[in-house]
Design a binder for these strands. Structure first.
Lengths: 106, 106
DNA sequence: TTTGCATATCGATAACTGTCAATGTGTTTA
DNA sequence: TAAACACATTGACAGTTATCGATATGCAAA
């Protein structure tokens, strides 16, 4: 994994690191949803919702499409798969000791 | 999933939403590592590393143990598994249309 | 083409974040 | 016990973030 790719993955985690956005993302997992209905589910203003949707879309986790006067949002499965893969590839080897650490003497 | 659990999961995502912390977490996946060696790998001050380790430990993603004058860190596999499970359970149903949305007329 | 609706953008603002240097705390060794 | 070392905490500060109200933009129906 190239070094600067961490920045991209960090952006994905950060996007989901806000409670409101995480709930929105989870809601989208059951299917396409329009902004007006998302707005009904949260005690936030319309401009704030738009701000959060922009963050989710900009990082690639969510796709938005215009349908007349409405915006309809869906999860971008490819980006989600990338993130799942990244996380699933982390397997903690808790038994491995850092034998090179400082003056480690077993 | 209870409503307030989103706050906990958001905290986990947020913890990994910083490039430095994400790299640290990935490094720990190969085994236990002490703070002094982590410090060598980043161009940050000792106090900043301590700040990041506190965030990773507080949310439960990382365990720290004192070993003499050193702190040795490992990934908390249980919390990681929870996060993996959360993310893996999100399966985008892109074909599902929000038929209840506004005045949808197919 | 004017009006009305849904959404995006802008400007302001309070709160939070990441960073450092300085200092405090806990542990080991001389 | 004193000194040295590793790490944590504190205070300060610049940058970022989440939020809102107001305004702009884009679309559709009248």
């Amino acid at each position: 994994m190239k070094n600067n790719e961490y920045k991209s993955y960090a952006a994905l985690f950060k996007a989901l690191g806000d409670e409101t956005r995480l709930k929105i993302f989870k809601m989208l997992s059951v299917g396409e949803r329009c902004a007006c209905h998302l707005l009904d589910d949260f005690a936030i203003s319309q401009s704030t919702l738009s701000y959060h949707m922009k963050i989710l879309c900009d990082c690639g986790l969510v796709n938005g499409r215009r349908d007349g006067i409405w915006m309809r949002y869906t999860i971008n499965g490819e980006t989600l798969a990338l993130l799942q893969e990244f996380l699933n590839h982390i397997e903690p080897e808790s038994t491995v000791i850092d034998i090179n650490c400082c003056n480690w003497n077993p």
